[in-house]
Write a protein that binds this DNA or RNA. Structure first.
Lengths: 340, 340
DNA sequence: CTCCATACTGGAAGCGCTTGCACTCAGGAT
DNA sequence: ATCCTGAGTGCAAGCGCTTCCAGTATGGAG
């Protein structure tokens, strides 16, 4: 492996100058820099990250903590982060916090404290006080996506407003009996998004003075099968007169559409379904949804935190992400005689 | 931040001894080690990875190169790798090679050459000669998953055997007109799995002396929408008499089932559909498939390569993964009068 | 024609660990 | 009793960069 010194010797300058030329910090004359760049390329020189990190304290590495990778939101956000990090020359180190509490704790103590990353992005994890403290103790910028924290900045959406918008869409179409599929009471106890989304649904109903009907509320785990089963039960309940259904995630909405099809309920003629996410499968099911631009959320968080790292190191600011209602064919005006 | 020296002083020993006690390399008396461990815990000491890496040449970091994260296979393999790496105390650095050739090249030159990882797992990427060379030049163990290489070891499946098994299953059920949905000729030009899977299908037919019918071959990109569109075209073609359909991935198989439903074709009464993967959504669609234990593939690759890293550093051996036919309700014996 | 700020450059001191080497000290073999 | 072996420990030399500092040259200001 060629080292800095090899380059310095070959270029006839000191190691210090090579370092400056390659990193862009400090002054180097144009001619010298050109010469060094040429020699470095010739020798295929790439600086050792360990040496560079040790000397400078900079890692050029971004940590990402996520609870899982299967659900669309997570891998989409991760894709966004990764693209942005790569563009900036940063590596991405993935910490997959599993359900195992020991693993989770290990991540926060052993792994993160090795000082391997310059910054951390936490995705959709509700942090315990202890965890926030550990994170703060790292002394590096932290940004939260799709979760909330009293003390840490985040790139987030108003998760209540999102379902409120979805619900309002249905109400405006004339639906009066609207159901909801969201997180189970105990689903992801440590993740507030489900309850927020539920709150938005409730709010929309309340604003129109419509009573929330417990029989119209289903619980699922945000996946397609989860939505399928919850919807089948909801739709199988006779006499509800439900003509609209809001799902707190697109995956559940898709599950609901599948359930409706199985039961011979036409979407949107008999039932309007709206989801939340902007899942790529939505197009296939012509699903009306509230797009939360997940990939963008990841990219934005990465950009935000990398800017912080590269500049002073003050704490990044929180950012509110926008979202848009994307109307497709799974929602329609309520039929004249509304009887499900 | 507390350093090794702090611990050494507090424990009344030399830094060398602390290092040995904490890393487990070299001899330290039981009493001394206990004392050091106690002090280290007390001081919340965690070694700086940069310093440790620089001095030892070990990174405790595993690189993973993937072309994408959305498709089920990828995030499932990654989950398996991550779990295993975490267990072993290794970080996972993710390199998401996008379609952009510049980014791809950048990963192989700039990123990987910083010597940040002890080993690399390449997932479902057909490497160019140049890339294999670059990888070899890194001088670290490399393992391929779901791709092939003449020179690099891998954890792989016989991708032809898999579809052969799926196809044989259909043939054994009495189906004689069997269609296939696989990769487009130019889909992932640099990824051989699609053509292998096609080859397995062809082989199964040939073994039974059944001619392969071009009209029964569909092309898609391994996703649900892709499978949907390909299947709709295949199924929409009148007079083929097709009663069985093999999809080269579960996602395409699911798309095909959706297409069949839309066209009023019953599965499995009118059409048997079999996929390949073991996708978690398969259960919902009662999809018969060939389970390739993807998460296991990831875990196995990680275990394999970490063992190599921890021991001598000789090259890891290739491993052939097993796969199992998982019969569910999407396949059935061919109806008496076979006419689609 | 001086003087001084500025642009470049090199020397050298680390960054915080790991590890080869030398040393001491028991305990077992002779 | 002597020698040898090996466990246990400390010293010190790095690992390959970064960056502070000091030194030299250069150009414009006075």
């Amino acid at each position: 492996m060629t080292s800095l010194d090899d380059v310095a010797k070959a270029a006839g300058v000191s190691a210090a100058t090579v370092s400056r030329a390659l990193s862009g910090r400090g002054n180097v004359s144009k001619a010298t820099r050109a010469k060094i760049l040429e020699v470095a390329a010739e020798l295929d020189y790439v600086a050792s990250s360990a040496a560079s990190s040790l000397a400078s304290g900079r890692m050029r590495n971004l940590g990402v903590i996520m609870p899982e990778l299967h659900r669309w939101f997570f891998n989409t956000v991760l894709t966004g982060i990764s693209a942005e990090a790569t563009r900036a020359g940063y590596d991405v180190t993935l910490y997959n916090v599993t359900a195992d509490p020991e693993v989770r704790q290990e991540i926060f103590t052993a792994f993160l404290r090795r000082r391997r990353v310059d910054a951390v992005i936490v995705v959709a994890l509700e942090l315990s006080d202890w965890e926030e403290l550990e994170l703060a103790r790292l002394g590096i910028p932290v940004v939260i996506i799709g979760g909330s924290s009293g003390t840490l900045p985040g790139v987030s959406m108003d998760d209540a407003a999102v379902t409120e918008l979805a619900t309002a869409h249905l109400l405006e179409l004339g639906h009066e009996v609207v159901g909801f599929i969201g997180g189970a009471e105990q689903f992801d106890a440590d993740y507030k998004v489900p309850s927020q989304r539920r709150a938005g649904f409730d709010r929309a109903l309340r604003d129109r003075h419509i009573a929330s009907e417990p029989a119209l509320i289903g619980e699922a785990d945000f996946t397609i099968p989860g939505g399928f089963h919850a919807a089948r039960q909801l739709l199988g309940t006779p006499g509800t007169g439900m003509t609209g259904l809001v799902a707190a995630s697109d995956e559940m909405a898709i599950g609901a559409i599948l359930a409706a099809r199985e039961l011979g309920i036409r979407v949107p003629e008999d039932l309007s379904v709206v989801g939340v996410d902007g899942h790529e499968l939505g197009a296939l099911f012509e699903l009306t949804t509230v797009d939360q631009h997940a990939q963008n959320q990841g990219a934005t968080a990465a950009k935000l935190i990398l800017a912080t790292v590269e500049s002073d190191g003050t704490h990044p600011k929180s950012l509110q992400r926008s979202f848009d209602l994307l109307v497709r064919r799974s929602t329609a005006r309520v039929p004249r005689e509304s009887s499900a």
